[in-house]
Structures are given as C-alpha cells and as structure tokens.
Design a protein around this nucleic acid. Structure first.
Lengths: 123, 123, 123, 123
DNA sequence: GTGGTCTAGACCACT
DNA sequence: GTGGTCTAGACCACG
C-alpha cells in the first residue's frame, strides 16, 4: 500500500486516503477480496490519527468499495472499475466546472482561463 | 449592489461577498470613494446576519480595498485593478491546479483531463 | 472662534471641539457670559454635521462650562480657570499613565520609554 | 497562559488578548510550535465568548504570529522578536504622541508635560 | 443613521 | 476533542 499523505495540502487527509485507495482498486492494483491494512497499522505507517484512517475506511465502505468484517479486517468488495472511473471523472468535472465558473465570475475571458489551464498541465 | 449568495455552497458566505465586491471594484462598477451598502442594509437585503457582512467588510478593509469610517460608512479605496486581477488570476490558478492534481491522483491521463476541461469551457 | 478640526485624526470631532473651547475658556480668551457661535453657524464654518457641534455643546454644558438659553444661544458660564487646568492636567496624566503602562506591559524599559517620549517632545 | 482581561477598559477584549500573546511570544515565554489554548478552553477560562477568542486568534494568524491547523489547534509560528519589538515600540510611540498633542491642545507647556511624565515614570 | 464589540449557542468539517 | 461559520440580538461610540 503506497499511500502518500500531504499534510500541508488543503485536501483533508481522509480524502487523500479515500482517493488513492479508490484509484488502486480501479487500476487493479487492489483486487476483490484483497485485504486492506488494519486501521492501526496504516495509521502508524502514515503517522496520523487512527480515527482519520477509520473515517477513510468508513467512506470506502459506505460507497460500496470495501467490506469490513468485524474482528477480521477490511476487504476490497466486488469492484466495478468502469463505474469507479465514471465516478471519479464526474468528481473531476465538477471541480473543473467550479473553477471555470469562478474565473468567469471574476470576469476573466475563456481564452485566458484556457491559457492558465494549459500552463498548469504543461508545467 | 447585486450580490448573489449561495447558502448551499461550501464557500463561506462572507467569502462570497468579498469575492463579488472585489470583482465589482476590479471591473469598475464600484469606483473610488463609492459607498458600499451599510452593514445592516446589506444584511437585511441578503437575509443574513449583520456580523457576516461585517466580517466580509473587515476582510476587504484589511486587504486595502475599502476604507471604513466610524459612524459614516464603508467606501471603496483607491483601486488598483491590475493588482486585483493578478490576485484573482492566482486564485483561479490554484483551483485549476488542485483539480489537475486530483485528476492525476485518480490516474486520469492529461489528455483526458484536457478533454473534460474543453467540454466544460465549450459547453 | 478659531477651532481647528482634524478629520483624519483618531480623536472624535466633538472631542476636539470640546477640548479647544475648554482651553479658550481657561486661557481667558472666552470670558463669562461671552456667547458661543450658534450650532448651525459653527457647523457651517467647520463643514461638519450640526449634530456633532450639538454634541460638543452638550458635553460643555453638562460639564458646567457653558449655559444654554433656549431660543437665545449658548454662553460661557462662570469659569474657574484653575479648576479647569487641574482637570485637563488630570486627563493628560491619565493618558500618559496608560501609555507608560502599555510600554511596561510590552516589556520595554523605562529608559527606552523616556527616550521615545523625549524624541516626540523634541520632534 | 496568564492572560488578564479588563472588561471595563475601552480597549476591545480581543485586542487585549492579541497584545498579550504577542508580548509572550516576543519575550520568549511562548516559543515556536508551542500550542495556544484552544478557543473553547481560553474562552471558558476568561469567561468570555468563544467568538471573541477566535477573533483574537484570527488577528494573530493574519499577522503571521500563529498558524492554525483545522481540527488540531493554534500554534506559535516562527517568531521574529525584533520585528515584533519594533511594532510594539511604534504603537507606544503613537500613544505617547497623541498624549503630547492633547497636552499642547490644552495649552500646557512642554515643560509641564515633561514634568507630569517624569512623575508617572518615577511614581 | 453609521460602524465596533460582544454574547450564547448552534451546526459543520477535520483529527 | 479541535477550529470554521453563522445567527439574532444586544450595547456602545460616532456623526
């Protein structure tokens, strides 16, 4: 489990974990019935609170991506990589749309917004 | 003063006010020495707490965009539209960068991210 | 009546008026039964709100320095220049004491405070 | 944290808190990365509203004296005691200057003002 | 009328 | 537990 946490990022830690595990599942690096690290183990490895890991696992489970078996651990559920991809694309789309709308609200032209976007993508 | 508040947004109300007034100043719709609505008047108009409007005005003043005179009101300070534009561009840039990073974290290729972006811009 | 108003000062306008009239009385430039300018006249002369002048006159009257005769005007009361001087000294003393206490609270030595004070007095 | 609040003073409570914490930082009693009391804890201790403490902490953060981490707490930032000292001296200087100007407005001679000042400093 | 401060409590997000 | 936002209303100072 290569999870990378950026504590100075504005993205909540639990969300960073959720995002990365979802991606691992989608890309097939985590397959059905694979076991996730225990909450305590992952929290120790990432040097963060166990409650934060627990929150990430809760989100994964309520989204149907994992199944938690009491007393045993957390396992990857029957994955549907395509659905997952669509979901993640939708989320990205929302973020991009919000940014574009903010730019337009600022009175910045679409050409300029595109220019900034390309700079970021290439930089 | 056409300020539009979206209470269901995750963006704090006071920040929405700050953003929109900054934009009005930058676009010249609010000029130097123009008076802003009184705290009470705007709070009544937007149906929000006076303290929330006050907080927005405080942010504007500490940013040097307005000058507040006790017992008289809040006025637009000597504007520096260019500096303001740079600031707003920087903010947009940050949002776009976060979105791109999220896309990459999802394992979505840059080409796909660009595709989504163009769809939004053209849509 | 040479009253000088500094609108950019942090001292309230009405207080500036009160201070200067008290001083005029104390120094004998305004004597008992002398008439003060009407509220309207002074407000026009100083280009400030009549309410502000009214507030200054109210303070003077409640302090016993003037007497207002309905329909006639405001007149200097029997002055007691010595008492007035003591009062003003007391006020100055309070301000200086507050400043010194603040300096000490900041952990600035008495020598340094004295140094700053002398600089101001000589500057 | 020995913070002393004077509710009968004209100085806003939040400003009193800001002043005293700045001084604690400058004098080294609060060092880099030290945690400040939680908003709720300090508000309870001082028997004031949590919002007032929050306002003080906001001012400290916007001044770069502290760093606030959501869900964790407020911590002392890399201090710059010298800059802080200059800032506090400037504040004291302003207060002294205002007092001197008031004395002169009262028509009190510089010698007398100095006399009062020395009495306070020595008393 | 204006802004400035404060309260007592609520709800939310993050750890 | 922590901080972040918001409310509805109060009281004060200034014009």
């Amino acid at each position: 489990m290569k999870i990378i946490i950026n504590t100075s990022s504005m993205v909540p830690i639990y969300e960073q974990i959720v995002d990365q595990i979802k991606t691992l599942i989608r890309k097939g690096e985590l397959k059905e019935n694979d076991g996730l690290p225990s909450v305590r183990a992952l929290s120790k490895e990432l040097k963060i609170s166990a409650l934060t890991v627990k929150k990430a696992y809760d989100h994964l489970e309520s989204g149907g991506f994992t199944i938690t078996v009491h007393g045993k651990g957390t396992y990857v559920a029957a994955a549907n990589p395509e659905l997952l991809l669509e979901e993640q694309k939708k989320e990205l789309e929302d973020d991009l749309e919000k940014a574009v709308q903010k730019g337009r609200r600022f009175g910045i032209s679409d050409e300029e917004i595109r220019g900034l976007f390309e700079l970021i993508l290439e930089g």
